[in-house]
């Protein structure tokens, strides 16, 4: 197969499916064991400096924000971060824990661009490679398939391709140009879900984003769940299980784990909190003050919930749409 063109970006993680196989075979238990632990334990045990890290879903939607706060408290650094979002990526960038960013979209949607992203990237502190949202999800999908790359028909003809680490080849079957995306195997994945049992069998309501792909692309996987349920409940509706236990290393009980983002059918996003953070994030000193108060200033998710206040969280529960 002839490579016609190559993106210029560095590959921040090597697409090696056999290395992944060997690793999970050696390191991950196939037994159903109790993996319920605190966020401190989970992050201390499974997140290492220099890890490639991905989060799912994104920013204001079913995002693993409580786990992200714990990573910042433990100061896990030189992270190679992949993905899209706002709050969780902004937090990690603001805490200066990120070396490289495989970026698809980091911004506030309705409220515009991210000041924290701008400072981190424009200063040259964080290196970037650009991808589209589809491309990033397909990179996880390739990893989930256990293959080193996946052919797709987007990214073609653009600078998004040029500044990625993708390659364009001639299809050996049709002769057409296709874009090859390198599989993205993560050292550590973080996913927030609606329900999990203590073994790590997880169910998600609403859209599944790229939970299926990212969970299967991660060597180590920490899930946080709004609710811990009995395995019997999982077994009643096994078709709703999107992440089976053998992918999971740690299960953390994290009510309101996506706050200030939303969790469909449970609580709506905290608009006031998001707007305050958005304003404060424009100024580095105020950004630090935000982290001091909401991240470093609390020991864990329980304390965070107390800081935000149950009255406010109950209000967000009442604001979420039903079915």
């Amino acid at each position: 197969m002839k490579v016609l063109e190559s993106g210029v970006a560095e590959l921040f993680a090597k697409p090696d499916p056999y290395e992944f196989r060997e690793w999970v075979h050696k390191n991950k238990s196939q037994a159903m064991t109790d993996k319920l632990m605190t966020e401190q334990e989970a992050v201390a045990k499974f997140v290492a400096d220099g890890d490639s890290l991905g989060t799912e879903l994104y920013g204001t939607v079913r995002a693993p924000i409580s786990l992200t706060r714990e990573i910042i408290r433990q100061g896990k650094k030189h992270l190679r971060v992949a993905g899209q979002g706002i709050t969780e990526i902004d937090f990690l960038l603001a805490a200066d824990l990120v070396d490289t960013l495989d970026i698809t979209y980091v911004a506030w949607e309705v409220y515009g661009i991210s000041s924290i992203l701008r400072r981190a990237v424009e200063s040259g502190r964080v290196k970037t490679a650009d991808w589209s949202n589809g491309a990033m999800a397909w990179r996880f999908k390739a990893a989930a398939m256990g293959v080193p790359f996946i052919p797709v028909s987007s990214m073609l003809g653009t600078d998004t391709f040029k500044y990625s680490a993708a390659k364009m080849v001639e299809c050996p079957f049709t002769g057409q140009k296709v874009c090859l995306l390198p599989a993205l195997f993560l050292d550590i994945g973080l996913i927030h879900v609606h329900r999990a049992d203590k073994y790590g069998n997880c169910q998600i309501d609403g859209i599944s984003g790229f939970a299926h792909e990212l969970s299967r692309a991660s060597k180590k996987l920490i899930v946080s769940a709004e609710k811990i349920i009995d395995t019997d409940e999982i077994k009643k509706y096994p078709e709703h299980t999107i992440i089976p236990y053998y992918l999971v290393d740690a299960v953390v009980h994290a009510p309101f784990g996506s706050h200030p983002g939303e969790m469909c059918y449970l609580y709506w996003r905290d608009e006031e909190h998001l707007k305050t953070f958005l304003e404060e994030s424009k100024d580095p000193i105020k950004t630090k003050a935000y982290l001091d108060k909401y991240v470093y200033g609390v020991k864990n998710q329980d304390e965070y919930i107390k800081l935000i206040g149950m009255d406010r969280l109950k209000k967000l529960q009442s604001m979420i749409g039903g079915r």
């Binding site: 661009i113 424009e122 970037t128 949202n133 990214m155």
Partner: peptide, 25 residues
Amino acid sequence: TVIGAKYWPPKVRLPGSGGANEVAS
């Protein structure tokens, strides 16, 4: 994606493609 002649480090970093590249492809 970026404003200015240089990709990295850029003069102004914008959000990135998001899903737009697939939508328009």
